[in-house]
Protein backbone atom coordinates (compact mmCIF):
# COMPACT_ATOMS: atom_id res chain seq x y z
CA UNK A 1 0.00 0.00 0.00
CA UNK A 2 2.64 2.52 1.02
CA UNK A 3 4.98 3.96 -1.58
CA UNK A 4 7.93 3.46 0.77
CA UNK A 5 9.68 0.32 1.97
CA UNK A 6 10.73 1.60 5.38
CA UNK A 7 10.30 4.53 7.72
CA UNK A 8 13.78 5.83 6.94
CA UNK A 9 12.97 5.76 3.21
CA UNK A 10 9.85 7.76 4.02
CA UNK A 11 11.88 10.44 5.78
CA UNK A 12 14.58 10.46 3.11
CA UNK A 13 12.01 10.95 0.29
CA UNK A 14 14.43 9.51 -2.25
CA UNK A 15 17.10 12.09 -1.39
CA UNK A 16 14.65 15.00 -1.68
CA UNK A 17 13.63 14.88 1.98
CA UNK A 18 14.87 18.39 2.76
CA UNK A 19 12.71 19.93 0.07
CA UNK A 20 9.55 17.90 0.63
CA UNK A 21 9.65 18.21 4.40
CA UNK A 22 10.50 21.92 4.45
CA UNK A 23 7.68 22.75 2.02
CA UNK A 24 5.18 20.67 4.01
CA UNK A 25 6.59 21.94 7.29
CA UNK A 26 6.28 25.62 6.42
CA UNK A 27 2.74 25.06 5.14
CA UNK A 28 1.73 23.21 8.29
CA UNK A 29 3.41 25.85 10.45
CA UNK A 30 1.62 28.71 8.71
CA UNK A 31 -1.77 27.01 8.83
CA UNK A 32 -1.43 26.22 12.54
CA UNK A 33 -0.12 29.73 13.21
CA UNK A 34 -3.28 31.14 11.58
CA UNK A 35 -5.41 28.74 13.62
CA UNK A 36 -3.83 29.44 17.01
CA UNK A 37 -3.65 33.18 16.39
CA UNK A 38 -7.39 33.19 15.66
CA UNK A 39 -8.09 31.14 18.82
CA UNK A 40 -5.97 33.43 21.00
CA UNK A 41 -7.57 36.50 19.45
CA UNK A 42 -11.05 35.20 20.27
CA UNK A 43 -10.10 34.21 23.81
CA UNK A 44 -8.53 37.61 24.51
CA UNK A 45 -11.60 39.42 23.17
CA UNK A 46 -13.98 37.32 25.25
CA UNK A 47 -11.87 37.91 28.34
CA UNK A 48 -11.80 41.66 27.76
CA UNK A 49 -15.56 41.77 27.18
CA UNK A 50 -16.40 39.79 30.32
CA UNK A 51 -13.99 41.89 32.37
CA UNK A 52 -15.76 44.97 31.14
CA UNK A 53 -19.18 43.51 31.91
CA UNK A 54 -18.06 42.65 35.45
CA UNK A 55 -16.61 46.11 35.97
CA UNK A 56 -19.79 47.79 34.80
CA UNK A 57 -21.96 45.62 37.04
CA UNK A 58 -19.78 46.41 40.03
CA UNK A 59 -20.09 50.05 39.21
CA UNK A 60 -23.87 49.78 38.98
CA UNK A 61 -24.04 48.03 42.39
CA UNK A 62 -22.18 50.83 44.21
CA UNK A 63 -24.22 53.93 43.46
CA UNK A 64 -22.40 56.05 46.07
CA UNK A 65 -19.44 56.70 43.79
CA UNK A 66 -20.12 59.20 41.03
CA UNK A 67 -20.67 57.54 37.64
CA UNK A 68 -17.83 58.32 35.31
CA UNK A 69 -18.76 58.94 31.69
CA UNK A 70 -18.94 55.67 29.84
CA UNK A 71 -16.13 55.13 27.41
CA UNK A 72 -16.16 52.66 24.59
CA UNK A 73 -12.97 50.85 23.76
CA UNK A 74 -13.02 51.76 20.12
CA UNK A 75 -13.27 55.46 19.54
Amino acid sequence: MSAFDSLSAFFAMGGHGVYVWSAWGVTAALLSLCFFQARLERRALLKALSRRARRERARAETPSTPMPTEESDDA
Binding site: F10, M13, G14, G15, H16, G17, V20, W24
Partner: peptide, 16 residues
Amino acid sequence: LALAPADYQQGESFRI
Protein backbone atom coordinates in the same frame (compact mmCIF):
# COMPACT_ATOMS: atom_id res chain seq x y z
CA LEU B 1 3.01 11.95 1.62
CA ALA B 2 3.06 8.22 2.11
CA LEU B 3 0.66 6.36 -0.17
CA ALA B 4 0.68 8.12 -3.54
CA PRO B 5 3.25 6.70 -5.98
CA ALA B 6 6.39 8.70 -6.77
CA ASP B 7 6.52 10.62 -10.03
CA TYR B 8 8.56 8.92 -12.77
CA GLN B 9 10.23 12.22 -13.74
CA GLN B 10 10.62 14.11 -10.48
CA GLY B 11 10.68 11.27 -7.99
CA GLU B 12 9.61 12.05 -4.44
CA SER B 13 9.99 15.85 -4.74
CA PHE B 14 6.71 15.70 -6.64
CA ARG B 15 4.94 15.39 -3.27
CA ILE B 16 5.34 19.15 -2.83
